[in-house]
């Protein structure tokens, strides 16, 4: 399959990309290309120009600071997968990375591209929502920061307006005892999630939950934060009953559709199972 005809612009900065996208609303960013290339071949998108950002210098950073982690727009899934510091700080991040597609896809695909693509079954959004991450958006009128939870508005739809690009992902670092996990149910290795649940738990010294984040993917028109489930955990000690209550609430907050990966009913039941597993898995760390 040949992609349709398009022009090609290789830029040296994101500012330059913004200018091109502002002047031409049919131009599209090319990052890892691992979602864009299939879309082009299937003629699901017909851009006028591809704006290749792969040569923009200094966009491949994973910057670990005291109060936050900043991830540049060209960080590939594989870089997250092999980052030892992230395995210690937020294991849910590399744990998400290793479960995306396969090695070749992870060598090129980017976290930023995954968010911008906004597949309702993508893995990153669940984990980034649980970790309360936000994205830095660069546009013609400057920079704005948007929580990942609000960034994706529906299937393959984001808040990105004309001329806007995603510049970096910012993940706040909580102090104290923080645990995290991402659990993905898949039919076969490398497939998109049937459902995926990410959990972040901040524990106080007595073992009760001071703060909790739960992000869920493939169980609704967009990845979402399970607020009721989070509330069921906060202030409590994590007994089996408390975990069960949270998992039940997460299931009630979900609204999956039936598709090739399962019926809506099955997926709802799996949201409950995966939420329970994600909490227990995080706790065991």
């Amino acid at each position: 399959m040949y992609p349709p005809k398009f022009g090609y612009i290789r830029v040296n900065s994101l500012e330059e990309a913004v200018k091109v996208l502002e002047a031409d609303e049919n131009a599209k960013i090319l990052a890892g290309g691992q979602s864009l290339m299939p879309m082009l071949k299937l003629r699901l998108v017909r851009p006028s120009y591809l704006v290749d950002i792969n040569r923009v210098p200094n966009l491949s950073y994973i910057s670990i600071e005291n109060d936050k982690i900043r991830i540049g727009a060209l960080v590939r899934h594989h870089q997250v997968e092999v980052n030892r510091d992230l395995w210690k700080i937020y294991p849910a991040l590399p744990e998400t990375a290793v479960q995306i597609g396969d090695p070749q896809i992870r060598n090129l695909g980017t976290m930023a591209g995954s968010l911008a693509h906004a597949d309702p079954a993508a893995d990153w959004p669940a984990t980034l929502i649980a970790l309360r991450a936000s994205v830095k958006v660069l546009g013609p009128s400057g920079t704005r920061e948007v929580p990942v939870e609000d960034f994706i508005t529906g299937p393959f739809t984001t808040v990105l307006g004309r001329g806007e690009v995603l510049g970096e992902i910012v993940i706040p670092r909580l102090s104290g005892t923080v645990k995290s996990s991402y659990v993905k149910l898949e039919r076969k290795a490398g497939d998109f999630a049937v459902v995926g649940v990410a959990v972040m738990l901040k524990l106080s010294p007595d073992g009760s939950v001071e703060d909790a984040g739960i992000g869920i993917t493939a169980a609704g028109p967009r990845p979402f934060r399970a607020r009721e489930a989070e509330k069921a955990l906060i202030g409590r000690k994590l007994t089996d009953d408390v975990i069960e209550d949270a998992a039940e609430r997460a299931m009630k907050e979900s609204s999956p559709i039936s598709d090739i990966r399962g019926s809506a009913e099955y997926k709802r039941a799996m949201v409950k199972v995966m939420t329970r597993r994600a909490i227990k898995n995080a706790l065991s760390r």
Binding site: L30, Q34, P38, D52, N54, Q104, L108
Partner: peptide
């Protein structure tokens, strides 16, 4: 279609020649 590009494996049906 896997080949090594700049030291990493890629699926060459998912990459443009100009890249």
């Amino acid at each position: 279609c896997t080949v090594i590009m700049n030291g990493v494996s890629v699926k060459s049906c998912q990459v443009l020649a100009v890249q």
